[in-house]
Design a protein around this nucleic acid. Structure first.
Lengths: 227, 227
DNA sequence: ATTTTTTTAATAAATCCTTTATATAAAACC
DNA sequence: GGTTTTATATAAAGGATTTATTAAAAAAAT
């Protein structure tokens, strides 16, 4: 999965260098020289990271920052501010405005790579997607089209397990083990059925189009994504 | 507060030099000559920085790097790679594997000192923001909208750890280790719960439960910033 | 020695897991 | 088709586990 970085930098020489060194390892770097063209692209395709110079021809860097952060949907976009050392605007101000990091210019090339990688590392949290569901395994969170769905711990584990194995049928026994551990046996019990009902109700209160299909005599399975 | 540096360097002469020059102004440098003894120490006390030579008797340097970065709890440990292989490829590879800097051997003593100091300075100047909270790790101070909040030492460490890892759930055990050290076990105790209550009360006297969420059976995590 | 902080211990409260019982549905059999 | 057998869905209750809270003891710090 490619990691998209927008560089918004007035100085074309610096911009060229940034583009060169960061265009590796799955980074897709796109350079912009002014805020107008930046936002034109931004509104159609959101990047994972923005490298933001504060000196721009058509807009104040702070305002770019504000405008990005205004929309809550952009909360996961990492913003690294690049600024000349003698700038009046301080690091604290930038952080207050919602920047995630601040690098003073002139910067070391390795320093830039290192910080970008550090942010990327942090961001590289796995997100599991299935249809309109997004699952954050590290936080036990599920979203359906940006709307958060509260599942209990076991419900979460069962759903995650099903989605991770969406191509096959999972027996009740296997599902039980998915949250209780391998050596737990679960004979003749309806626990999983109850959890499944909980999941179904929460994911889809109107009971219209269940994600989870029951396979008579076998267990459960997720629907194929295109049906 | 002392800054702990682990040096993992095969060559005892170089190791001695590193130890000598960095054991100044608040640095506590501990030297290891092989990965085995390094990890033994590492698992019981985490350093702030690792100086990593790539040529080791018992393990590939890259694998040391990987193993450290594997555990998300280590993401704030600065890793500086020292290597004789000074090709560009190797440099970028190392950074991509999670190193924060790369120094080619043979290195200038001043070069080493300067790079280490740069990382250390950054570490010391760090300000951590979360919602309306600002944390100054060096001073052990927390502000909520410019109003200072008095936390005890352990409360501070727990809150800081949670915020630094706001993207994931932290178990009570991990939180306990965050201030008591890696090799401390904390079995069947409610200490963390009590600290969490202390933090919640102080951060948010009206108990609207703004910040810390309990995950039943798992631990605690911070709320997403926009919820 | 006094105060503050940390931890333990005990109880209360909350969560949510599991069982149970019954209703419903699917497959098998006549 | 109708009946029986078997499997699943659902709702409600009970129970077990987990967390919150409080107070007091122990440990540290001043």
């Amino acid at each position: 999965m490619s990691y998209i970085i927008y560089s918004l930098e007035d100085d074309k020489e610096i911009s060229r260098v940034i583009n060169l060194i960061l265009s590796k390892n799955g980074n897709e770097v796109i350079s912009f020289y002014d805020a107008t063209s930046f936002f034109k692209a931004f509104d159609s395709l959101k990047p994972n990271m923005v490298l933001l110079d504060l000196m721009l021809p058509d807009m104040k860097g702070e305002d770019v920052l504000k405008r990005i952060r205004e929309d809550k949907a952009n909360k996961d976009i990492e913003i690294i501010v690049l600024s000349a050392k003698n700038s009046i605007i301080s690091k604290v101000d930038m952080l207050d405005l919602g920047a995630d990091d601040y690098i003073a210019k002139p910067f070391e090339v390795l320093e830039l790579i290192s910080r970008v990688n550090a942010k990327k590392r942090r961001h590289n949290e796995e997100i599991i997607k299935y249809q309109d569901l997004s699952i954050y395994p590290l936080k036990y969170e599920v979203y359906r089209n940006n709307e958060k769905i509260d599942l209990t711990t076991n419900e979460f584990k069962i759903l995650t397990y099903l989605i991770k194995n969406k191509e096959r049928i999972i027996s009740r026994d296997e599902l039980f083990k998915a949250y209780w551990g391998e050596n737990m046996a679960n004979f003749e019990s309806r626990v999983i059925d109850v959890h499944i009902k909980g999941i179904r109700d929460k994911l889809d209160p109107n009971n219209k189009d269940h994600y989870i299909v029951t396979i008579y005599g076998e267990g459960y399975k997720l629907k194929n994504e295109n049906q």
